[in-house]
Computed example of a mutant assay.
Amino acid sequence: MTRTQPHPHRNWAGVAVTIQHRMAHLGIDITHLAATSRVSATTIHELVRNTTQRNRHALTLARLSRALHLDPDHLRHIATTPPAIAAELAEADLPQQLREHITTLLANLNHELDQLQTEYRALRRQAAPGSQSTHNRPAPAE
């Protein structure tokens, strides 16, 4: 996957809406957010307008979250909540704190699933015929 392709499970539209709402609530503009977060104005423009979808570094999202007076993992959690689930949660008759808790749990599960898939692919590569790692293993003791 290249840097310019969106991650298939990322909710960048949700991130855009959250940043827009927080900027309006705090009465700040992109220039101010860039200065306080130490994230480039170009990156913030891309996120706010949801124009260039790509995987964003966790530090970028954490810096923006903090500058927006949110929990450091807040934007990452939103990004990793599938859009369909985020839409249903937004319409659900639930207290905001419970909604955020559910979003956090889903984001954590999504992150763990991504890690498991990465580990699985690495193990498959190691077990593939002709793989160097299979040739370098010592013979089993008899």
Rank of each mutant, 00 (worst) to 15 (best):
L116Q: 15
Q97L: 07
Q115H: 03
L113M: 11
A79P: 02
Q97Y: 08
L123R: 04
D114T: 00
T80V: 08
E112S: 12
T103A: 10
N108W: 13
D93E: 14
R99A: 02
N110L: 09
Q97F: 10
L98G: 03
R121N: 14
L113D: 02
T103I: 01
A86T: 02
A122W: 04
D93W: 05
A92L: 07
L98K: 15
L89P: 00
H111N: 07
N108S: 09
E88I: 10
T118Q: 15
A107S: 07
D114K: 13
L116R: 03
N108D: 15
E91V: 06
A92T: 14
H111I: 10
P82H: 05
P83F: 06
Q96W: 10
P83Q: 01
T80P: 08
Q96G: 11
H111Q: 11
A122F: 06
E100T: 08
A92C: 08
I102R: 05
E112Y: 12
P83V: 01
D93Q: 13
R99I: 01
T103H: 04
A84I: 11
L106W: 11
N110G: 13
I85E: 02
P82L: 04
E112W: 12
A86N: 02
L109F: 11
L105E: 08
P95W: 14
L89W: 01
I85D: 13
L109I: 05
Y120I: 12
R99L: 02
Q97I: 14
L116G: 00
E112P: 07
Q97W: 12
H111A: 09
I78P: 04
I102D: 14
L94I: 05
D114P: 05
A107I: 00
P83Y: 03
T103P: 07
P95F: 15
L105Q: 14
A90M: 02
L89H: 03
A84L: 15
P95D: 15
Q117D: 12
I102H: 00
A107D: 00
